[in-house]
Design a protein around this nucleic acid. Structure first.
Lengths: 241, 241
DNA sequence: AAGTGGTCTAGACCACGGC
DNA sequence: CCGTGGTCTAGACCACTTC
């Protein structure tokens, strides 16, 4: 007879989940000791190896530090370097007011560069969303996003004024963005860009071209942005190994 | 009586080491199956958990992929995105000829920005090394490096024309560079930079300021570089999580 | 069906840290 | 000294993939 086998999380996952929640809730602060392997084993009625597995993975994820002879401690909140974040998220993390104005939202064709970067057949139709990014009243970037029209034509009727594109893609389309490859260079502002950004034509702006990939390595979004370089610097951390 | 207890690597480390060597030697190619947990346990006379530990860490390090029911396989050689690399290394990885001309190598003081970024006392003396970077005969960047003069005055008599600064620091000074924080923006070329790079004054160039940190998070090297943006674009990969 | 990785047990001894 | 994490055993059952 078939049991009603609802999938149950492994013990070590449940232990991790409980600890994560206590850390996120602030009940366990950075530097605080978390329960030892033996304690976790007793309290959760699992063997030492299982409790150990839970803590070892948490350490690997950077949530805790383990010190032999001393214990396991909540680690300092890790700074996310090189994290792919939406404009809205970036501004929020700096405590700045984020606004954007939609300059263009339509279906286009003939954007060869975007089509190529999205690995689509030539002449594919695209949704184009162009926005002026502002911090308060100060404009500092013009960003154009391109997506395959086949899948995302519905975006034309979404409230993109109010909700971030990332959020819409993730919540309404179930898209899980994974990473972006970016190409950065410096270029003189065109007359149009200059006017939108309130600078002189020909002034240097930072140009960032991003191809964003979702689960499975599928290219789903291509973005070209022009940034006033007096109001925006790009921060990167690179590692030797 | 004290045994001659020469420290011996744990069993799982020895297993990892052996597998790593076989992979590096090309005996195990990407996609090839590596011995299963049970095989490793038998052959190395360890328990299953120990063999498992060895493979689990190798997976975590990205050397192998594990698939339940199928086996453990050598993973595709991972590409190092966002790797901190010297000019010499970067050019080599693209198969381009790298050259540089030293414009200035001396001890200076009064470079406040560099002093601040290196977290040194206000009027510290610095070694300044300024170089014109060329790919073949084409100049494409001017880079100025600053290091604390106290530690690195000896650089003045090193053969920096022939050997990369990174290599000199790593081999002769035992410095282990770990990571760099970079700030990128666009700026108009000054008259001097323009002349060196063979472009017009005021043309947009990419400005990259790097603080390089060695083991222990110590700031060791500060670099300001100006890059012709028609010959150099910066590539970054950002991750969502 | 045979083999694989995933989870887990109920112990053991060791090396190390802090008191 | 005691408690901590680090390593390890000799098994077990399960879920999954491959054939």
């Amino acid at each position: 007879m078939l049991q009603n086998t609802e999938p149950v999380a492994p013990a070590y996952r449940r232990i991790q989940y409980a600890l994560r929640k206590r850390i996120e809730a602030g009940e366990l602060q950075p530097g605080d000791a978390v329960p030892s392997e033996r304690e976790l084993a007793r309290n959760n009625e699992v063997s030492l190896m299982t409790a150990r597995h839970a803590l070892a993975e948490l350490e690997h994820d950077g949530l805790v530090d383990r010190r032999r002879g001393a214990g396991t401690f909540v680690s300092l909140p890790k700074i996310h370097f090189n994290r792919l974040a939406s404009f809205t998220e970036q501004m929020a993390s700096r405590g700045l007011p984020a606004r954007s104005r939609i300059l263009c939202l339509s279906i286009i064709d003939g954007e060869q560069e975007a089509v190529a970067r999205l690995a689509l057949p030539p002449h594919s139709r695209l949704v184009k969303l162009e926005r002026l990014r502002q911090s308060g009243e100060q404009p500092f970037a013009v960003e154009s996003c391109y997506l395959p029209a086949d899948e995302f034509a519905g975006l034309l009727s979404r409230p993109l004024e109010r909700r971030s594109l990332f959020a819409t893609l993730e919540r309404e389309y179930g898209i899980e963005l994974q990473y972006a490859d970016e190409e950065v260079d410096a270029t003189p502002a065109s007359a149009r860009i200059a006017e939108l950004l309130g600078i002189h034509a020909g002034a240097p702006v930072l140009r960032i071209r991003q191809a964003l990939y979702s689960t499975g390595g599928k290219a789903t979004l291509y973005v070209i942005g022009f940034y006033r370089s007096d109001r925006h610097t790009l921060q990167i951390r690179r590692f030797r190994k």
